[in-house]
């Protein structure tokens, strides 16, 4: 096969990897946001994202039956749709904090991990049971028009939208963390909780804001998952959860920038192993092997800080 000879083939695969990487990255950034600020692994992040996809679809169904999609101009109802999904995801984020993180503040770090895993099961099953025909695959409505820039299949409106949305969302998160007062408070808390409290930072409200922010981020991830694949099933969340978590760890769990590198790295490994003849069966396995090797050789992740234990 002409792997290198044909330029468009490689570019096509690069594009595949970048798109996949965008989705992994958003979930991974969610993970590292939670971990960075509160030192907890929120394992149901993938499920929150898929919940976002389903709430978009549900809202769309309601809008359509109510005739809103025909009545209002497209940008308006699109914004409303996103708004509904974002609010629902943010609410779920806060619920996650209140039900699975806050009760375990003083116990071992294992407890939030397990209780978010349990919450993930609950979210997944709730979608499966209470969404109409929830256990069947669901078609995501076509929110991004088909067609492409300059007639080039790779630059379809959808691909461009996904990349732009990811970029803008990440930019917004960084600005929020860097420039806003709340963002600074989050960073202070990430560095030293007790000191942050002494400095007069309201730990509770910072924690809740973190989860609102994380929920918003994951709702965008949910939108991208729906738009990119066009089809979702209620149990897809666990897959994105594991992949996102792996990406976050590879990048260095507490580092939001590392999550981007981790997400992209994981996606590239998967795509390029799939290209090899018969490699598709092993793509995920190789990605996880890379994670293991990485962990063992450089446990603090790509951008994580090396912690030196002092006695």
């Amino acid at each position: 096969m002409e792997l290198l000879g044909n330029g468009s083939f490689l570019i096509e695969q690069l594009m595949n990897a970048i798109m996949l990487g965008c989705i992994y990255t958003l979930v991974a950034v969610g993970f590292s946001l939670f971990f960075g600020v509160l030192d907890v692994v929120v394992f149901c992040s993938g499920d929150i994202a898929v919940f976002g996809t389903f709430s978009l679809m549900g809202a769309y169904m309601i809008f359509e039956t109510a005739g809103l999609t025909a009545m209002l101009p497209t940008p308006v109802w699109m914004m409303l749709l996103m708004g509904v999904a974002a609010i629902l995801c943010a609410a779920l984020g806060v619920f996650t904090y209140l039900s699975s993180i806050r009760p375990f503040e003083k116990s071992s770090s294992l407890m939030p991990l397990l209780s978010t895993i349990a919450l993930g099961v609950v979210i997944r099953e709730t979608i499966g049971l209470f969404f109409p025909l929830g256990r069947n695959p669901q078609r995501f409505p076509r929110l991004i028009p088909s067609g492409s820039f300059g007639g080039h299949a790779l630059l379809s409106y959808r691909n461009v939208t996904i990349i732009c949305v990811t970029f803008l969302v990440l930019l917004a998160v960084f600005f929020f963390l860097r420039k806003s007062k709340m963002g600074n408070a989050m960073q202070a808390m990430a560095q030293n909780k007790r000191l942050a409290a002494i400095a007069g930072i309201n730990i509770r409200s910072v924690a809740i804001t973190t989860f609102v922010l994380g929920g918003l981020l994951l709702s965008v991830a949910g939108f991208l998952i729906g738009a990119y694949y066009g089809t979702v099933r209620f149990d897809n969340g666990s897959l994105y959860g594991i992949k996102g978590f792996s990406a976050a760890v590879v990048g260095g769990l507490s580092n939001v920038y590392g999550a981007i590198i981790g997400g992209m790295l994981l996606a590239f490994i998967e795509v390029f192993v799939s290209i090899l003849p018969g490699g598709a069966a092993y793509a995920s396995a190789v990605a996880f092997i890379a994670v293991v090797i990485f962990m063992v050789a450089k446990p603090e992740g790509i951008l994580g800080e090396k912690t030196v234990e002092k006695v």
Partner: peptide, 11 residues
């Protein structure tokens, strides 16, 4: 469990 067939399809 995989959702992404694009890499394979390009191949």
């Amino acid at each position: 469990t995989q959702n992404d067939f694009r890499a394979i399809l390009s191949k």
